[in-house]
């Protein structure tokens, strides 16, 4: 007597292929997302993609209600992320304004304030309290802060005349001279 093994009825090959392709795609997606999250803030040397910052009424730049990074080609851009609920931001608010007043006449440096996860009445009260006059606006949809992958506020990004990031300051500045020493690196 001979024994025969009856073949098992399995999942069709095409279904198996689809399942494996799907699982692989899912793993790739998870991997990319995790990798992105672990990258941290953008690094000096990175070319900063163009972004648009809407500006609060009363804090426009040369009459414009919104500005783009590309508008400032040829100038040093100091992009400061802040919030009215952020206590360390208060430590540097006056210094930033003082630095802005110092560079404003030369026209070679632009200061931009991106208000992060804030409400407009409180943001306005903060700007008024510290006498800030440079262009400021809300980071709508937290798009800009996500692009820079900020980890908190305050954080300040120094972008050179070619649109390349050259310095990142995490936390508040301790003095106006600290700001000046960073800006001056790119001024002739």
């Amino acid at each position: 007597m001979t024994e025969t093994t009856i073949p098992k009825r399995g999942v069709p090959l095409w279904v198996q292929i689809i399942i494996w392709v799907f699982i692989a795609a899912l793993l790739v997606l998870v991997g990319i997302t995790l990798n992105k999250r672990q990258q941290g803030t953008v690094q000096p040397g990175d070319k900063i993609p163009d972004f648009t910052l809407p500006l609060f009424s009363g804090y426009e730049y040369e009459g414009k209600s919104e500005v783009k990074l590309s508008d400032f080609q040829g100038k040093v851009v100091v992009l400061n992320f802040w919030a009215s609920w952020c206590k360390p931001c208060e430590q540097e608010a006056a210094e930033l304004e003082e630095a802005w007043q110092f560079y404003k006449p030369g026209g070679q440096v632009i200061f931009l304030g991106a208000d992060y996860v804030d409400t407009e009445p409180e943001a306005r009260a903060y700007l008024k309290k510290f006498g800030i006059t440079f262009a400021n606006g809300p980071d709508m949809g937290t798009k800009i802060s996500q692009m820079f992958r900020i980890r908190g506020v305050p954080e300040t990004y120094f972008i050179d005349q070619t649109g390349e990031l050259y310095y990142v300051k995490v936390g508040p500045f301790v003095s106006v001279n600290e700001i000046k020493s960073i800006v001056d690196q790119k001024l002739k």
């Binding site: 007597m1 001979t2 024994e3 025969t4 009856i6 098992k8």
Partner: peptide, 17 residues
Amino acid sequence: RAWTKPEVVEAGSGEER
């Protein structure tokens, strides 16, 4: 379902698997 069914039968027994 596969575990509850016999997988091996004797050839020539005439029985359906």
